[in-house]
Simulated scan of single mutants.
Amino acid sequence: MDIANHLAVIDRLCAREFPAAHDRTDVGTGGPGYLMAELQTSGDFYEDDGTEREETEALYEADRDALGERLAERWGPADVFGLAGVFLRSVAGEELAEPWGTLASHVPDVHLWRAESGRWVALGVSQWDGELPFQLLAVVTETGPP
């Protein structure tokens, strides 16, 4: 993991304007009120017996925590915000502001800060399915968690 590069990406997200429409960006995706960067992406696990997946998950969580320590130096300790309840609300048909609705479908929890700018900054580890890659995600949004 390249912490300096990841911090630079987060700084760029914090300074950028939000896109007017949902679209791909140079580092991930964005839309009205949010930007999401895919900081790291693992390989897939189609040929895995479960061992590599467990090791990769632990590595991505450790990388999130290490990056989070650097962000905590700026903004204080993170709040850990579980997204399971948000996911259940979205499945029940509740309209949730982005990026929270989509994020809850593949990230179990985020480490969350409020930057001086008033924007929310979140780090999370994504995995859509058991065979698909993990991703270390950084999210910057003007919309607080639901």
Rank of each mutant, 00 (worst) to 15 (best):
W128V: 09
L88Q: 15
W128T: 12
L136V: 01
D63H: 14
G85N: 14
E54M: 08
L103D: 05
L67P: 05
A104N: 01
R114P: 00
L103A: 15
R114F: 00
E116N: 04
E52M: 10
R119I: 00
P77H: 03
V121Q: 11
W100E: 04
E57S: 12
E94H: 09
D49M: 06
A78M: 00
L59E: 13
F81S: 01
P133A: 08
A66I: 02
Q135H: 14
D44A: 10
W120N: 10
E142H: 03
D48I: 01
G118K: 09
G93Q: 05
W128I: 06
S90W: 05
F81I: 12
P77A: 14
E94P: 01
P77L: 07
A138F: 06
D63F: 07
A66F: 01
R64G: 05
F45L: 03
G68F: 11
L112I: 03
E47A: 12
V125S: 00
W100N: 13
R74E: 01
F45Y: 15
H111M: 12
D49L: 09
E131M: 09
Y46E: 15
F45A: 08
A58Y: 03
W100K: 09
V121Y: 12
F134L: 06
E52Y: 06
L136K: 13
L136D: 09
D48S: 04
L112P: 01
L137V: 05
H111W: 13
L137Y: 04
R89N: 11
E95W: 02
E98V: 04
R70P: 00
A104F: 00
E69G: 12
L103E: 08
L88P: 00
G93T: 04
G68K: 05
G85S: 06
D109Y: 14
L59M: 11
D49K: 09
T56S: 12
Y60K: 07
V139D: 02
G43N: 10
W100H: 11
S42F: 06
F81Y: 15
D129R: 14
A122K: 11
V110Q: 02
G43S: 07
F134G: 04
G43W: 02
S117N: 09
A122F: 04
V121A: 04
V125K: 11
S105W: 09
G101D: 10
V121E: 08
L123C: 11
R74G: 03
L112Y: 06
L67R: 11
G43K: 10
A138P: 03
L88T: 08
S126A: 13
